[in-house]
Write a protein that binds this DNA or RNA. Sequence first.
DNA 1: CGCTCGGTTGATAAAGATCAAGTTATGTGG
DNA 2: CCACATAACTTGATCTTTATCAACCGAGCG
Lengths: 243, 243
Amino acid sequence: MAIPSLARVKCSDCPIRHRAVCARCDEDELQILESMKSYRSFAAGEAILWRGEPLSFVASLVSGVASLSKTMEDGRTQMVGLLLPSDFIGRPGRSRIEFDVTATTDVTLCCFDRKPFERLVDETPHVAQRLMELALDELDAARDWMLLLGRKSAREKIATFIEMLARRSRGTEPVPDGPIQLPMTRDQIANYLGLTLETVSRQFSALKKEGVIDFTDRRRFEVRDIIALQDATGDDADGGILS
Amino acid sequence: MAIPSLARVKCSDCPIRHRAVCARCDEDELQILESMKSYRSFAAGEAILWRGEPLSFVASLVSGVASLSKTMEDGRTQMVGLLLPSDFIGRPGRSRIEFDVTATTDVTLCCFDRKPFERLVDETPHVAQRLMELALDELDAARDWMLLLGRKSAREKIATFIEMLARRSRGTEPVPDGPIQLPMTRDQIANYLGLTLETVSRQFSALKKEGVIDFTDRRRFEVRDIIALQDATGDDADGGILS
DNA sequence: CGCTCGGTTGATAAAGATCAAGTTATGTGG
DNA sequence: CCACATAACTTGATCTTTATCAACCGAGCG
């Protein structure tokens, strides 16, 4: 069950202050958000929101990793998004969502009741603009993932996934070049990449045998050969430099 | 080459008036858009925008079909979006796009120079709100497509594609139950669905042999058995009724 | 201590890609 | 208007990749 957390972090001290939906807000606007917010925590594996369920709150992800996924009648599932700190859950103007939101690791959310938040969005261009940016970023990420799902080989998918984790944690992790934590099980990785867990395991083993990565533990690895890794992703060498 | 069209349709008579970026605008706002807009036409196959190229204009698609696609170094291509009348091209706050935009059929665009348009967005909540809705709709569509690309079989992909075309043209086509036009070649369909053109052709043939669809011509077909078609998509029978 | 869960590895099967002919349209120039 | 060229499409044979089925391993926990 979700445990409403009483711990109160001041918005100005919040770790996601400059990236979340409040990024563009000034002090006055922050005051309003401060008075509306409440924290909730979810344990790894817990459902945060179910597909189709009425959406009573929206939230910013403060810490941990959550995932968006779609499941077919026969059980096939596809992850359609990975939420990291500062990502937003919920939509202005929509009372339901079309996918499940699940806590992948232990998660803390900064929640707002939906109705008051929507009123705020209408009145606060800074919030509306930031929400727009976040939506467009998600759209770009979704499109990159479509290329991966539709056209990349298993090896390329795994390499892309690892490279993404490595790049992302360079900002977040305490030791910049140290071991990287896999925030999910092989099965969840498979659902993210459109593979089976066996194929995921085999590709990890192959990259390990080639000396590209090295596992210190089943959930923790280090990149040994970043060039070979980027090569294996199938992406342009300078991918993103133009942007 | 793009031929700047001199034909001027009044916004109030525009076929996409209530669905495009201007949907929520009142008469005064429409006046402003009217004075800023210009039409451009592109022939089937022509490039509208290249990935990475500076974005000088944004536009609404007035007629025809355009596609967004990403291409890897070795030529593998994945379509990441299909633009239909009323869809928007370009992003507020971004000077480049991360994919190619191509005219799939002959296309007419209602264009706005980017800079003035961005100023307008900042000053006109009706436009900003509509842009947000359009972006969220695209995001939902992208996520549905991720499930298709990652988890559906070739047969399910083709059935989903046909069902989507059928549903969509029910609104647009002159004869509601008549033949439906395929707006793209087998090769383009393959790039949309993450398949090869041979597999696309084979699946069409299979559905035809089973009497689910019937081709009146290579680019025109009729749905003979809608139940069997929906069955073959792999989606929930009531998919979308809840939304 | 033995169970369970997450993970690895191997053998086999199936789906779809690839390679290779052909066939049907759609032009285009004579 | 016809002959021919070309692009779009279909179909078949074969090969590759990844899924599926199955056995097993090791860490953590009741």
